[in-house]
Design a protein around this nucleic acid. Sequence first.
DNA 1: TTACCCATTTTTGTATCCAATTTATAAATT
DNA 2: AATTTATAAATTGGATACAAAAATGGGTAA
Lengths: 221, 221
Amino acid sequence: MAERTSAKRTGDQAIRVADALREKIVSGDLKPGEPLRQERLAVLFETSRMPVRDALRLLEAEGLVQMPPNRGAIVAPLDPEEFREVYEMRAALETLALRLAIPELTNSQIDRAAAIQDKAEASDLEHFGALNKAFHSALYEPCARPRLLAQIAALNETGDRYLRIAAAQLDYTRRSHQEHRDLLEACSRRDGVEACEILRRHIEAAGEALVDRLTARLPAS
Amino acid sequence: MAERTSAKRTGDQAIRVADALREKIVSGDLKPGEPLRQERLAVLFETSRMPVRDALRLLEAEGLVQMPPNRGAIVAPLDPEEFREVYEMRAALETLALRLAIPELTNSQIDRAAAIQDKAEASDLEHFGALNKAFHSALYEPCARPRLLAQIAALNETGDRYLRIAAAQLDYTRRSHQEHRDLLEACSRRDGVEACEILRRHIEAAGEALVDRLTARLPAS
DNA sequence: TTACCCATTTTTGTATCCAATTTATAAATT
DNA sequence: AATTTATAAATTGGATACAAAAATGGGTAA
């Protein structure tokens, strides 16, 4: 019976489940506060409880799932205050990454980031999110700090949940594109101080705008 | 086989195991790279493999354990580069916490921090670590950012592993105490910029000193 | 209506069992 | 003798069944 078509090799079940669940949570398919029954998930993903529990622990560490003792796992509720925290931390950590990366940035890496930005400006909203992330990653990666980059990625994922429901990107993309251009210009001058200042404002501006939207849309408590 | 000798069926076994393991790892009782066999741990903690695996996942998320697929869990190896990352992130996040906390700081809270510092200066090295942590926490907590504070706590735990083996505190406590005094002074003036600058230097100085010690003591690999 | 009790649901923990993979060991060949 | 190969042992990853504790919900009685 284990002769299933899919190559479900050992060792990746928990990660497979976690990836699928993360996608469902970030995309809003699973709603905040919704209970995540272990047995149901095991059936849904055609596996057993153990990988499901592993996956839930993984997502709990990422902040996408909450596991109150004896009460079962739930999709982490959305809270504008939490989002404020996330973008404050992003501003702090991403400027750190950029500051460390700039001395290591090669011209070809800057060119690649510029190419990503070109594509982002030409694409629709559907792909904007991924390209936006790729642009930032391209600038941060040369800092060679795996833990820092992982933390930034996790914060972005949490932030994406809020982005999705606010959908405030429409009137923000133009400003974002200009800020990306300014950022690239500062990077090519290897002006770390200026680049970090632009980046900090870039992140904080997006955060502030979204917090305003979210407080209007979500229950205050 | 109803072998219920003790009434420890209540509560979360995984957390109990994780706490015990974390203590053993941070204290250096379990050495870096040492394999953590699930069966052995289950016997040691008088439980079964499932809570042990839960605990290992928990500690993996905290960065104290590594779990290469199919190769078993090991105590996360120590790496001076990782420690550098940790204190860089601490500097970024703790200054953020302090900056957000200062406008909310009451006089009584500052007095309490000063009292902790008094005790720290009078105590021996054994208690210095805990009091040092308490001093910083007292200044950060008013920022009211649970995620940020949790992240800072996790980074401190990881950093403690390195502190333990370097034992460079001896010649550092005096300088640390002076910096804490300066920090308190800036806080009571509600000078956020100055306080953050002192804190940033405080963390970075401790980090740099330790990285030097660590690179000399650990395999360069 | 309100408070309490009880059955159901769900999580949590235990005990095995099996398969896949890694690691260690022994044998064979060059 | 050293390297490679084949085999065996150990260990993890995963599945299933079952028991126990806690939460949930509903119904009933005061």
